[in-house]
Amino acid sequence: MMFEPLKPHIETIVSNPNNSVNKRLLAICKLLEASIPHYNWVGFYFRNGKKEELILGPYVGAPTDHTIIPFGKGICGQVAISNKNFVVPDVTTQDNYIACSITVKAEIVIPIFVNGKNIGQIDIDSNTPDPFTEADERFLEFVCTKVASIL
């Protein structure tokens, strides 16, 4: 399984107090994008204070115009409301999808909870159709739990 060997790397990144939170989040993005072939854009979105919107945090991949996403808009905005994982095998089937790139075929978004509150999420786009499995979900839940410990 490609995910198990990455877990100690995630733990090492998260537990490094010499780096800022944003540097650690960026290091996670870089590790995931470089290590998992079907992860073509990896980034974090966080609730923007008390506003009903998400603001883009550290990410790797193609630049995006979607630096602020209102709650309810797109896959990320829907996860901000539902508090549930959202796996999209084919983005063309989603009416409420916000296209970042014409190369993106699939997306997975996993919420990050701190003290029971959804404070953000990890967002991954793939240029491969239907690449995400339950193993991706479980691994990304692990990543989000580790990230939550430093927020």
Rank of each mutant, 00 (worst) to 15 (best):
N48Y: 01
S101Y: 07
A99F: 05
I69T: 03
T93A: 13
I36R: 01
C144V: 01
I55A: 05
F86E: 01
G74I: 08
N96F: 03
K117P: 01
N48G: 03
A62N: 11
G72E: 05
F139K: 04
M1Q: 09
P8Q: 10
K51L: 06
P129S: 15
L6I: 08
H66G: 01
N40H: 15
D136W: 06
D95G: 14
K73G: 08
L25E: 02
S35C: 05
P17K: 12
M1S: 15
E4H: 12
V147M: 09
E141A: 13
S15F: 01
R138I: 06
L54F: 02
T103N: 11
K84H: 14
T128I: 15
P5S: 13
N40Q: 13
S20W: 07
G120E: 01
N96L: 05
H38N: 06
A80C: 04
F71P: 11
H66N: 10
D95A: 15
F44T: 00
N18I: 02
Y45S: 08
P70E: 05
D90M: 11
N127D: 10
G74A: 03
M2R: 10
N83F: 09
N18K: 14
N127Y: 05
A62S: 15
L32M: 08
N18T: 15
C144Y: 06
D95V: 04
R47H: 07
D95L: 09
I81C: 00
I68Q: 08
I75M: 02
A99N: 11
P89V: 04
D130I: 00
S101H: 10
T64H: 10
L140C: 03
I98A: 00
G72N: 05
P8K: 09
Q121L: 11
P89Q: 12
N96W: 09
K23W: 06
A148S: 11
V14R: 04
P89A: 14
V14Q: 00
N115D: 04
I98C: 12
Q94W: 07
E53G: 04
R138A: 14
L26D: 07
M1I: 08
V88D: 00
P129I: 14
I69V: 15
D130E: 15
I13D: 00
Y59P: 03
